[in-house]
């Protein structure tokens, strides 16, 4: 069973590759026939390619090329109108399709111009992966109208109602647009998905058309530093004494006064009838006065100046550190580069 599958794959894979290669070979052969003005053989090959019954895989680009050569071949055969129809078919599928003047005759070029005049289409050339420095570089877009049209090109964040208008006015043919990476608010485009929207009205047929190109942008910059975390309550010193402190200070002072009062009355020898009681009483009185004054002072001033100053310094240090970090981050962000990549999704 396994051998059968392997054998089947060996048979199918080269077949697919040959089919793919055959279309390309046939197109090359058709181009050679066209150059040699052997349009009969050319037509046979091209009709085989565009036929729904073609056994080969035909890509979108190959089909557009086939229509282009068919149109040109029919013009050579004198079937100008039919040729124009095929040219239109090519233009409808790819507005960027063009005839190279060195390969095609003036009659073919004139017919192709007529096809462009009759067909209104807008096109945006697909963008490639790219990285730009918005300070010195620009992102290029190539847009195209098949003939003169009133065109508006707008770039916006996908889903946003409005964006930055890159171009608005009458244009005919291809136009190169350059974008500096800034949005309408003047800020650098943030990381995300964007769309380039072309909308236009033909100046000849007054037919409207629109087309979108989606792409993604990623901001590329050096890693940013985290700012210093906010100071937690435990990181700061208490800025006020507890409400009970005034009473405690009073008790301490009274304790000192009591000690001064009691020393000459307890430690001193009673037989000496002294101990410097007057001196001790003086200290006791002073301690009492200091205690009462301290109690009143503490009732009115619970703040701790040293701790307040220390906290102010800590906050200032944090603010300074954060300011420096912000400056460094700002400098890194100023060097942001934009990584541009095509994205899936194509609008009508």
């Amino acid at each position: 069973m396994r051998h059968a599958v392997v054998a089947g794959l060996l048979l199918v894979i080269p077949g697919a590759a040959v089919a793919q290669g055959n279309t390309a070979d046939q197109l090359e052969q058709a181009a050679r026939y066209h150059a040699a003005l052997d349009v009969e053989r050319e037509l046979v090959l091209l009709r085989r390619i565009i036929s729904p019954n073609s056994p080969f895989v035909v890509t979108h680009e190959q089909r557009v090329l086939a229509y282009k050569y068919l149109g040109a071949a029919l013009v050579v055969l004198g079937q100008r109108d039919s040729g124009i129809v095929y040219f239109q078919a090519a233009l409808e599928r790819d507005p960027f399709v063009d005839l190279e003047p060195q390969k095609f005759t003036p009659a073919e070029l004139a017919a192709f111009s007529e096809a462009r005049r009759l067909t209104f289409g807008l096109g945006i050339r697909a963008i490639a992966f790219d990285t730009i420095d918005p300070r010195t570089e620009r992102l290029g877009f190539t847009v195209l109208t098949t003939h003169a049209a009133d065109l508006r090109v707008e770039l916006r964040s996908a889903g946003a109602p409005a964006g930055v208008v890159l171009y608005q006015g009458i244009t005919d043919g291809p136009r190169e647009l350059r974008w500096d990476g800034l949005l309408a608010d003047g800020h650098l485009a943030a990381t995300g998905r964007y769309e380039l929207l072309l909308s236009g009205v033909s100046e000849l047929t007054h037919r409207p058309d629109s087309v979108r190109l989606y792409f993604s942008i990623q901001q590329d910059y050096a890693p940013l530093e985290d700012t210093v975390t906010a100071l937690r309550p435990e990181d700061l010193l208490p800025e006020q004494h507890p409400a009970t402190m005034a009473r405690a200070e009073l008790f301490k002072s009274m304790g000192i006064a009591a000690a001064a009062f009691l020393i000459p009355r307890t430690v001193a020898n009673g037989e000496l009838h002294g101990g410097g009681r007057t001196f001790a009483d003086g200290i006791a009185g002073t301690a009492s006065v200091v205690g009462i004054a301290g109690f009143i002072f503490r009732q009115r001033h619970r703040e701790i100046p040293g701790n307040i100053a220390a906290n102010v310094e800590r906050r200032a240090q944090r603010a300074a550190a954060n300011a420096a970090i912000r400056d460094r981050n700002q400098a890194r962000l100023a060097q942001t580069r934009l990584i541009v990549a095509p994205a899936a999704g194509v609008g009508p």
Binding site: P264, A268, N269, G274, G275, G276, F279, A280, G282, I283
Partner: peptide, 26 residues
């Protein structure tokens, strides 16, 4: 600063009498 100091010295009794001494200052 203001300070009250007190020193007490009790000597051993001798011949039935005891010498007691103290010096206090502010």
């Amino acid at each position: 600063s203001a300070q009250y100091t007190f020193e007490r010295y009790d000597f051993a009794p001798s011949n039935g009498a005891q010498r007691l001494e103290e010096l206090s200052t502010i």
